[in-house]
């Protein structure tokens, strides 16, 4: 099972590219032209991310270098360790449903501080990649069509996030811990 999951990690992207190439040649598409055209959007996306990342990473770095973040983690560690939850990723887990760019900034900072292949770095990567920003999605979609009574949407969304985060901790501990 674990071997299969790491096999997927390595094979998935190259195989997907192959499928795209085969599909493009069957349909006789100008694949290279399309690639370049679509790629331009990638430049735009990365550049538009830049100010968000500068703002967030700087704020988190201030918090980290002052020692406040470590003090906070040390304070909570005994309680969280009891249930096997690494305190280092708690700030990320808390902010993940609220702001996508803040979470991205925190993930980056965790990867930079602990290393991408460390347990914390791996866990942060999985948390960042496996759920979306619940509050943002809710605001955008319900705001756009003028929904005022959201009923149980927020509770259900946050509960699903909690389960995804616990699943991430459990599976990463099993595979990389």
């Amino acid at each position: 099972m674990m071997g299969f999951i790491s096999l997927i990690s390595i094979w998935m992207i190259p195989c997907f590219i192959l499928i795209i190439m085969v599909a493009a040649s069957i349909r006789k598409l100008p694949a290279y032209d399309l690639f370049v055209e679509g790629g331009k959007e990638g430049v735009k996306t990365a550049v538009s991310l830049l100010p968000f990342l500068v703002g967030m990473i700087t704020a988190i770095s201030i918090l980290r270098s002052s020692g406040a973040l470590d003090a906070f983690i040390e304070l909570l560690a005994p309680v969280l360790e009891f249930i096997g939850f690494p305190a280092e990723v708690l700030p990320l887990a808390l902010i993940r449903p609220i702001s996508g760019t803040a979470a991205l900034g925190m993930t980056t900072e965790l990867i930079a501080t602990y290393g991408p292949d460390s347990f914390i770095g791996t866990l942060a990567s999985v948390m960042q990649g496996s759920t979306d920003t619940t509050l943002y999605v809710l605001t955008i979609y319900f705001g756009a069509i003028g929904i005022k009574k959201i009923r149980y949407a927020l509770q259900a969304g946050l509960l699903a996030d909690l389960i995804a985060i616990l699943a991430a901790v459990f599976l990463v501990t099993m595979m990389f811990g």
Partner: peptide, 18 residues
């Protein structure tokens, strides 16, 4: 890309749970 497999699994669990 080491995290791709686990991320996929966690996403699937989160979606089904959701």
């Amino acid at each position: 890309t080491q995290i791709v497999g686990v991320t996929l699994l966690v996403t699937a669990i989160g979606t089904i749970a959701g």
